[in-house]
Amino acid sequence: MDKPDPTRHTKTRTKKESLSREEHQKQLEFQREAIVHLNALYNYALHLTMNPSDAEDLVQETYLKAYRFFNSFERGTNCKAWLFKILKNNYINRFRKNSKEPGKVDYDLIKDFYHSIKDTRSDTSETESDYFHSLLHEEVYQALHSLPEEFREVIQLCDIEGFTYEEIANMVESPIGTVRSRLYRGRKLLRAQLEGYAKKYGFNTNNSQ
């Protein structure tokens, strides 16, 4: 804690200085637990909204809410999962209300979106002849987005974000068994999509090759 500075006693205290010790502790803990997940949340928001500026709003809102209700975060549980759930709820409240066809895929939009914020990250696995490795980022992204939302969501949370089935079940408010079967079915669909791309390149996708 800061020691009182005798030369400053006549000045007006800034907001920061007048924070209580508890508030200060809360801030520190929040930074340690919550802020470290900012990149993951931003990516999740991008996937949901497919629009960088909406994604920023969504993340901003999520952190505001999370900070306000940080006391209700159960210490020792996965803070990332907690934040994801808040973001998802915000998303539903804000964006889904006016969307009539949430399951509809706009491939042009995906393509535009992907090109508009494409990373410079180079692909190191191009040399492999395996058909999986021939797939482009954009194609995998498109295949994922062609899935019905309930499947896409669990695959994303499991494979990209690394949440456990229990955490996912809590996030999507369904039993673990449902998460398990959605992943099973979703992956089947996804594989079929990816194999479709692979065939386009003339790869033999049979097991027996």
Binding site: N39, Y42, Q60, S125, V140
Partner: peptide
């Protein structure tokens, strides 16, 4: 392999600096 593909091929973006600052 399919799981790995999803993990590797979906690009993870960095949050814009302005967003980090404001948060």
């Amino acid at each position: 392999k399919t799981k790995m593909i999803i993990k590797e091929k979906i690009i993870q973006f960095k949050a814009p600096q302005a967003l980090i600052m404001s948060i």
